[in-house]
């Protein structure tokens, strides 16, 4: 136990926590944007899988990280386009569409990988380019803090910037006002001439781009290359983080960090003699517990409000 503690208290742990939080955070931000407009994006997992695959292959084929990222996003958006077409236009239940698209993406990514590379396991036959790591000038020389914050993959910084981006989008732009209005009171939106479907479409696209960046990080940063099933529930964890953060960017960031911490802990516990399986289930258990805590807290608060009102009414 003290072993574990001494691991956690190292700068290395902080660094690894930020690293593993990256994909979760992207997914969580993607979930916030979609959910704020009232259209759930359960297909985040699929977005990430496709983006990871397309990024791995795209950067290898073009020999450019930039184009690799663009191709990754384009790949992720294939899933979003399908979600939009079925969920918004053919009126398939959007949650069911998301579930279906995750199934489609899990097999589809392997199918495409085989079509392109004739390999069903990973993209190891192609040399995936990795997004560069960035040293933060000034910060990198600060002891401990520099080791934690500096030298990360550029996408990790993007992930944290995306929190600001989502906050700015939702609370400081006209589009964000419209997104929140559609999500909260669609009738009100329609009564002032806001086009509900278009707003949902745009938020699902933005959500897709954010999740795709998370996917790209997995194959072009966390690893170099795509392997089957590599997202392994991170999209769902992001979904849970957004639910815990009640669709607010900063609380969601905190929830994502908690899951990231659990993930990082599982990485270091693997180094100790704790069985692999137990280590791996930590992030998932954390998610369920976190969800329960937040949900019960919320119902408790509503109940308290009602009791208070009853007391004051009498």
């Amino acid at each position: 136990m003290s072993d574990l503690l001494s691991y956690i208290l190292t700068a290395e742990f902080g660094y690894s926590m930020l690293r593993v939080t990256t994909p979760i955070l992207f997914a969580a931000m993607g979930s916030i944007v979609a959910e704020s407009s009232g259209a759930s994006n359960i297909a985040l997992e699929g977005n990430m899988l496709f983006a990871a695959l397309f990024g791995a292959i795209g950067s290898g084929l073009t020999g450019s990280v930039f184009w690799g990222l663009i191709i990754a996003i384009a790949g992720g958006l294939i899933i979003s386009a399908l979600l939009i077409y079925f969920g918004l236009y053919l009126k398939t239940d959007i949650i069911l569409s998301g579930i279906a698209l995750n199934t489609l993406a899990s097999g589809g990514s392997i199918f495409l990988m085989y079509v392109i590379l004739h390999d069903k396991g990973s993209t190891s036959s192609i040399k995936t380019l990795v997004c560069p790591n960035i040293n933060l000038p000034g910060i990198e020389n600060i002891p401990v803090l520099g080791d934690i914050l500096s030298g990360h993959n550029i996408l990790t910084y993007f992930a944290f910037l995306s929190v600001i981006f989502v906050w700015f989008l939702l609370y400081k732009t006209k589009l964000g006002m419209h997104i929140r209005c559609v999500g909260e009171n669609a009738e009100a939106a329609a009564s002032v001439g806001i086009k509900i479907k278009s707003v949902k479409l745009v938020s699902l696209l933005i959500s897709g781009v954010l999740a795709s960046l998370g996917g790209a990080f997995l194959s072009m940063g966390y690893m170099n290359g795509f392997s089957r099933g590599m997202v392994s529930g991170r999209g769902f964890i992001g979904l849970a983080a957004a639910a815990m953060g009640q669709l607010s960017p900063v609380p969601t960031l905190i929830a994502s960090l908690i899951f990231g911490c659990a993930d990082a802990m599982s990485n270091i516990m693997a180094a100790m003699r704790i069985p692999d399986e137990f280590v791996k289930l930590i992030p998932y258990v954390t998610t369920v517990v976190g969800l329960i805590v937040i949900s019960s807290w919320r119902t408790w608060r509503v109940k308290k409000k009602r009791i208070a009102a009853l007391v004051s009414a009498n």
Binding site: F86, G107, G108, F111, K120
Partner: peptide, 24 residues
């Protein structure tokens, strides 16, 4: 042949969404 079996998941996804599509 050179086509993998995972193609079926694509078909599966499409079937779910089409069969459940209200506006289809």
């Amino acid at each position: 042949t050179d086509v993998t079996s995972e193609m079926i998941s694509i078909i599966q996804g499409v079937i779910i969404m089409l069969v459940a599509a209200q506006a289809f």
